[in-house]
Nucleic acid binder design. Structure first.
Length: 336
DNA sequence: AATTCGGGGAC
DNA sequence: GTCCCAGAATT
C-alpha cells in the first residue's frame, strides 16, 4: 500500500477525471489504436520504446504490411527483419521482436500470454511493455510507468529526486498500481500517455487544460520548472574508428556486425582492428556521427580484408539489407 | 547501481 | 546546440 500522504487523490476519482479528460482531449487516431491485437500492440510498443510517435508511424505501417501476423514474422529472414528497422535505432529491439515471435509460436502454441508474468517472459518485454499490452490489447489491469507517467506523477505528487533512480522508480510503480483501475484500462492507460505527451510536457506544460491542476503539487507550489528533477548532464567521449573500403567489380564488401555493441546485427563496412594497424592507409573519406553516449570520428581507408569474413553486395542488393544511415550515406556518395 | 544500446523531434 | 522520447538487457 501507498500512503495517502503521497497519493492525495482518491483512486476512483483519479480514474474518473482522467477518463473524462481522455475522452475529450486525448489522442484517438494513432495507427496502433485501430484494430489492436496483442501482436500489433506488441509491435507498436517495442517500436515506441524511447522513440517518439511521429518517428514510429511509418515504420509501424511498413512493418505490419510486411509482417501482418506473428507467424509470418517468426518465419521471416533476419536480414529482412533488420532492413525494416533500418534507421529506427536500438537494433536489439528488432532482434528481440523477431525472437518474441518465434517464442510465442514455439513456446506458447501461437497464443499470446494474457497476464503480466507471461508477457514479461517474452524477449524484449519488460514491466512497462507488459502493462501496456495488458491495457491496450486486452483492456485489462496493466499498470504502466514510462517517461510520460514519470513526469506527470513527479509533478502531480511532488516527488523529488532523479525520476529514474531506484527509490523514485519504486514510488512511481506503487502509485501506478494504486491508481490503475480494474476496468476501462485501455482508455486509462492511453489517457496517462496522452496527458504526458501533449499536456504535461517537459517544457511549458499546458496546465490550464489539465484536469489535475488544482491538485498538482508542482503547480500549486510553483515548482513546475523544478519537477521532475533534471538529470545531471555529462560530457560524451569521442571514438576514432577506421572503416575499410573494399570495392571490386561494382560490388562492395560488407560484414555483419555482432549482436552486441553499436549497430548490432546490421551489415556495415568492415571495422579495422586498431591493434593490427601498422601503417597509414590511403583515405577514401571521412565522416562524423553523434550517438547519445559518444561521438564517432570515422575514417574510411583501403586495406586488405579476408574474403571469408563477409559478403559482396551490388548497389541494388544494398537496398534489401539494413545498413546504418551514416554508412549508407557514405556509400551513396563514394560508390560507383 | 551504472552502463549500453540510436536516431530524431521539438525547441 | 540541448533535452528527451510509450525501456530493456547487461554488467
Amino acid at each position: 500500500m501507498i500512503s495517502t500522504d503521497i497519493a492525495h487523490i482518491p483512486a476512483p476519482e483519479f480514474a474518473q477525471r482522467l477518463l473524462e479528460w481522455a475522452a475529450e482531449q486525448g489522442r484517438h487516431d494513432l495507427p496502433w489504436q485501430i484494430d489492436a491485437t496483442p501482436y500489433s500492440v506488441l509491435v507498436s510498443e517495442i517500436m515506441l520504446q524511447q522513440t517518439q510517435v511521429a518517428t514510429v508511424i511509418p515504420y509501424y505501417q511498413r512493418w505490419l504490411k510486411s509482417f501482418p501476423t506473428v507467424e509470418i514474422l517468426a518465419n521471416a529472414h533476419e536480414d529482412q527483419v533488420m532492413a525494416h528497422w533500418q534507421g529506427l535505432g536500438y537494433y536489439s529491439r528488432a532482434r528481440n521482436l523477431h525472437k518474441a515471435a518465434k517464442y510465442v509460436l514455439d513456446s506458447c502454441n501461437g497464443q499470446f500470454p494474457n497476464d503480466l508474468k507471461g508477457l514479461e517472459a517474452i524477449p524484449g518485454v519488460g514491466r512497462y511493455t507488459a502493462g501496456a499490452v495488458m491495457s491496450f490489447a486486452y483492456d485489462n489491469f496493466g499498470p504502466i510507468v514510462d517517461g510520460n507517467v514519470r513526469r506527470l506523477f513527479c509533478r502531480l505528487f511532488g516527488i523529488d529526486g532523479l525520476p529514474t533512480s531506484t527509490a523514485v522508480t519504486k514510488t512511481l510503480w506503487a502509485l501506478a498500481e494504486h491508481y490503475t483501475p480494474q476496468t476501462r484500462n485501455r482508455n486509462f492507460a492511453q489517457g496517462l500517455l496522452d496527458m504526458g505527451a501533449t499536456l504535461c510536457t517537459p517544457k511549458s506544460p499546458k496546465c490550464e487544460r489539465c484536469c489535475f491542476a488544482d491538485d498538482c503539487i508542482a503547480k500549486t507550489q510553483d515548482r513546475v520548472t523544478e519537477l521532475p528533477t533534471p538529470k545531471p548532464k555529462k560530457v560524451i567521449p569521442t571514438k576514432n574508428v577506421e572503416f575499410i573500403w573494399h570495392v571490386k567489380h561494382h560490388k562492395i564488401f560488407l560484414q555483419k556486425r555482432p549482436d552486441s555493441g553499436i549497430w548490432g546485427g546490421l551489415w556495415c563496412l568492415p571495422e579495422s582492428d586498431e591493434n593490427q594497424v601498422e601503417e597509414k592507409a590511403k583515405s577514401v573519406g571521412k565522416f562524423k556521427h553523434t550517438f547519445s553516449h559518444y561521438k564517432l570520428d570515422a575514417t574510411v581507408v583501403h586495406r586488405p580484408v579476408s574474403d571469408e569474413t563477409g559478403q559482396w553486395f551490388s548497389q541494388q542488393e544494398l537496398r534489401d539489407i539494413g545498413l546504418p544511415k551514416p554508412i549508407q550515406s557514405f556509400i551513396d556518395k563514394h560508390f560507383e
